[in-house]
Design a protein around this nucleic acid. Sequence first.
DNA 1: CGAGTGATTGACGCAGATCAAGCGAAGTGG
DNA 2: CCACTTCGCTTGATCTGCGTCAATCACTCG
Lengths: 244, 244
Amino acid sequence: MPICCRHCPLRSLDVFEDLDGEEIRALERFKAGELKIGKGTQIMLEGASSPQLFTALSGQGLRHKTLQNGRRQVLNFVFPGDFLGLQAGIMGEMKHAVEATTDMVLCVFDRKDFFGFFRNHPSRAYDITWIAATEEHFLGEALASVGQLSATERMAWAIMRLHARAGALGMLIGGSRIPMPYRQQDMADALGLSLVHTNKTLARLRDRQLASWTDGHIQITDYDGLARLAGPEAGEPLQRRPLI
Amino acid sequence: MPICCRHCPLRSLDVFEDLDGEEIRALERFKAGELKIGKGTQIMLEGASSPQLFTALSGQGLRHKTLQNGRRQVLNFVFPGDFLGLQAGIMGEMKHAVEATTDMVLCVFDRKDFFGFFRNHPSRAYDITWIAATEEHFLGEALASVGQLSATERMAWAIMRLHARAGALGMLIGGSRIPMPYRQQDMADALGLSLVHTNKTLARLRDRQLASWTDGHIQITDYDGLARLAGPEAGEPLQRRPLI
DNA sequence: CGAGTGATTGACGCAGATCAAGCGAAGTGG
DNA sequence: CCACTTCGCTTGATCTGCGTCAATCACTCG
């Protein structure tokens, strides 16, 4: 019943690197199963040492961490193909929580097999390091955005990134409509803005005919205008990347 | 003339994991040389594919990225033991710049040997992934600080982190005096604050007898008070970590 | 001694936070 | 099936933390 990795619908996408037959078989041996979860489910808790690692196969979610003062920082949005739990696998404990915002299907791996897999498959180990380095790069960009851009620019940056990611996964509707199964509060917590100001910033983007967020989707109406606000880096297409 | 890894003065510190003789010899073979650079030198440029990777042996520096609008985000401060250039090694191109703020000595590795080293030494590969995951974790914390904390709290957080890092490396003077070879502008760019407000925030910390930054050093005068501002996570001691 | 760099301090203005109220859609339980 | 609650979005009014501008001071260096 679980999808065999060789028939994984994600792997046929251009963004994901190809693997040869032997490599795929190794992955299938590593794979422990598949998990369907409902929207709103907590996938991993902050501070927990999850016994399992996951790859998102379908659905969306978000990574976030909660501070002592009750405030919350959204670190990233989770899309299909994302590898979840690397910190638990490597460092022994999750440093942020992961939660599903739609129903999701996850590919499950056992943490106890992780080190062996890493050791016996150096190319996959390299891929995992690539993923960690890329995640690090993303957080650096996010930090620069939150630290140095205005609310409007941050929002444009976030929309550009979401557009690039959704585009690479073939999730865009009509080329410019991005699935957004999140609340404005989630976006606010991602960009370090208040909910109210997030709402008003979105209203301004709508008035300026740049993009509008309605009904669970963001519709981009002026890509170049957004890109000008967001800075050049935000528009770059995603690099081809490994899929574990 | 270069220090042999087996006599590396850093490795005898408690924060760094031990390696057995064979592992050390492998590191020595990977090591291409040593580099002394003067303060102010650019070690790696944003966007460049550095032919070399480094480990900081002594001195301090900073990682930063520059935005299109001319503003700058400092991602992290560089301390001895830090591995520099992972992104160039893995992703082919640095996503941020690294610059020395004091004279530094760097341990040099050739990028062309990197993949082979990674493949032939799975434990080292694991260590490198550990480093990437830890760096990711740090950036997540930094993002949460910049996104959700007030100027005073951010400053307290930064000082706590610097204290922990300097302490683990035995760089503290009298247990609470942290070497700070940076300008207030650097701290401002790290915390997403203006220079003026950074200065005023420091003045407030000084008035409240929490910490004072003078003469290239931060003196902590009320550790618990700072910790209360910064949040519990900031005070945690550093995990033991690999040294490449 | 003049020029440059970094720290410091005051005055002022604004982007964005906070407070408050209202709205529609979607439960939900009696 | 209809009150009643809850949740998320929207909008206006007000407040404030922090940015910006500007001037001064202390040091260092050629």
